[in-house]
């Protein structure tokens, strides 16, 4: 067996294991931490597929920002290991059926892929940032620009909401004026 294949197997084992652990953990904080580990292994998979940009962006966006917010919320809610809201067996049954059919679809989709090489070190350059940028700005320039405008408007919207004076602040300012 080649070294890269061994690496791939180990990584896959960790990622599947952490995914399972994420589902099995009773403590939601542990679930989030397992999920973070999962994101790291997925980034490592990206790296092995020579997609460095995707790997790093996955870490920055998912592991670095979104999961921090997740952790933030879970910690604030202070969920204990004992609280288990899902006790409805009918819902669980529905969940099993839905999950099972999703698995079936995924397996059938994966089976159809012809090039199923797990590791593509140094092969192909479609994951590199240069190629990615050219593709985004030539082939998909309109959707890319629309989505970037969407993000920019979200950021500016956040700033506008933050800049608007809340009523309490206005009254505070007035009282200060009166007292002076």
């Amino acid at each position: 067996m080649e070294l890269t294949t061994i690496l791939f197997l180990i990584l896959s084992l960790i990622s599947i294991g952490s995914a399972v652990m994420m589902l099995m953990s009773r403590n939601p904080v542990y679930s989030v931490l397992w999920l973070i580990l999962l994101f790291f292994t997925i980034s490592a998979h990206y790296l092995m597929l020579n997609a460095q940009f995707l790997a790093v962006v996955n870490i920055i966006v998912y592991a670095g920002a979104i999961m921090v917010l997740f952790l933030f919320v879970v910690m604030l809610m202070n969920l204990n290991a004992d609280t288990e809201p899902m006790k409805n067996y009918r819902l669980q049954l529905v969940g099993v059926i839905a999950g099972g059919s999703l698995l079936l679809i995924l397996v059938s989709a994966v089976m159809k892929i012809e090039n199923n090489q797990p590791v593509m070190l140094m092969v192909g350059d479609y994951g590199l940032i240069k190629v990615l940028g050219k593709t985004l700005f030539q082939k998909f320039v309109l959707p890319f620009e629309i989505s970037s405008i969407l993000f920019l408007s979200a950021i500016i919207g956040a700033m506008v909401i933050a800049k608007r004076d809340t009523p309490s602040q206005i009254t505070k300012g007035e009282t200060e004026k009166r007292s002076s």
Partner: peptide, 25 residues
């Protein structure tokens, strides 16, 4: 010398908060 050097720095910086959050919780 990876060709995404700055992004790597940025990614690691964004992870720096985990040590603090995990320890504090």
């Amino acid at each position: 010398d990876i060709n995404i050097g700055i992004l790597y720095v940025f990614g690691v910086v964004s992870l720096g908060v985990y040590g603090i959050i995990v320890g504090s919780w």
